[in-house]
Design a protein around this nucleic acid. Structure first.
Lengths: 211, 211
DNA sequence: CAAAATTAATTAAACGTTTGTTTAATATAG
DNA sequence: CTATATTAAACAAACGTTTAATTAATTTTG
């Protein structure tokens, strides 16, 4: 399904991701990317066809897919419905924090919404993921642990909105709480832990509170 | 303090905001803006100095400031601490929904983070607003309605993250819930109502839940 | 109050860069 | 020998900004 990329192609995609996330798609030139990657400018068109298609390749490779994880969670009988949802929350935090740069680009691209290939890709991804989340929620509703009416996109909005918004405010958060002395990894651990606890409280409220 | 702008300048700022929010700052040319506004291209440099400074002018004019609202809320003795916070939540929803285009630009600009004037402006705004929120939260803590430790930036992250993330997913939300038949205004009313109820549940949980 | 002088607004054209992409030549590998 | 990879150079188009000329508005002056 997914095309395989040579080392040089992967190098170009990594460098492009890095620069797109710092300067935006339009703000990054193919010369920037090529120079930073130590590869001739013409290779971008040679390998990917265009700067646009290089971007699409990045999106196709790195978009978030939760199918597998939800599959595993639904089958796992040791976990109750809440624990399943909590596991998924942590999965989202991990995956988004793991791919910070990509998700910063994603955020911008969702706003600008220009490239039809990417728009299509994201729409499919959202529908797919929402559908998997629905399965997980219905599971909790059948067990009478969750309330009957849950606005799943709204819930996902808070999940992804909270994670991605802190992603662009990491440095503000760090300085607000005087965590400058922590190393990058230590700080990331703290953030992930706090995010996890924070969102679980939120999800519990959303899933149980009867209006 | 704030510079006043002529009708033509305001026209340029409105048109620029519109285009920046659709195609990004780098993706919009001064010729695009001028043509759309029916004004000569050179007028942008003439009035604002540069495209960059036009952007800064937009930010200076439209950045969110909650000082006044918090002032009023703190003094209002008819409201308990929860109601005060809830009012502020609605204030955020209203102001951000009112300025959809600007907040889409803001979102991108926070990611890209290139223009030092805007970076400075946003940092000050965040510090100022966080400080006002702190006052409001401390008020509730003194009345023993809120728990002792509240991570205010994390709470604000969820507030703003949720609102802005739905801002870039309005159409997905609309189609998911089959609300295509609603007019723009009706749909916006529905969104604001749901956002309001949703975030209030979240805030209640964040402010009361003892870990 | 009107004419002259001055300032401000507006224009089309031109400026020098930078943009993404293509080309045609050369190098490398199988 | 052939196919792929790599290069520097060239391409036209688009970019933000400046210029110099012209028009409009405002102020000064007789």
């Amino acid at each position: 399904m997914k095309p395989e990329y040579s080392i040089k192609q992967q190098q170009l995609m990594d460098t492009a991701e890095q620069l797109f996330s710092r300067k935006g798609f339009e703000g990054t030139s193919v010369r920037d990317i090529a120079e930073e990657a130590g590869i001739n400018t013409a290779m971008i068109s040679y390998y990917f066809g265009s700067k646009e298609k290089l971007m699409e390749a990045i999106f196709e490779q790195r978009s978030l897919n939760i199918k597998e994880q939800v599959d595993i969670l639904l089958k796992d009988e040791r976990l109750d419905a809440f624990q399943k949802v909590y596991h998924l929350v942590d999965e989202y935090i991990d995956k988004i924090m793991q791919r910070k740069k990509f998700h910063r680009i994603l955020l911008c691209e969702e706003v600008i919404n220009q490239n039809p290939v990417i728009v299509e890709l994201l729409a499919k991804m959202k529908n797919r993921n929402s559908s998997w989340i629905s399965d997980l929620i219905r599971h909790g509703q059948k067990k009478r642990l969750f309330k009957k009416q849950v606005d799943i996109p709204m819930m996902m909005n808070t999940l992804i909105g909270t994670i991605t918004h802190i992603l662009v405010n990491l440095e503000f958060y760090r300085s607000y709480h005087n965590l400058e002395s922590l190393s990058e990894e230590e700080f990331e651990k703290v953030i992930k832990k706090r995010l996890s606890a924070h969102i679980k409280i939120i999800f519990k409220a959303i899933l149980t509170n009867e209006s």
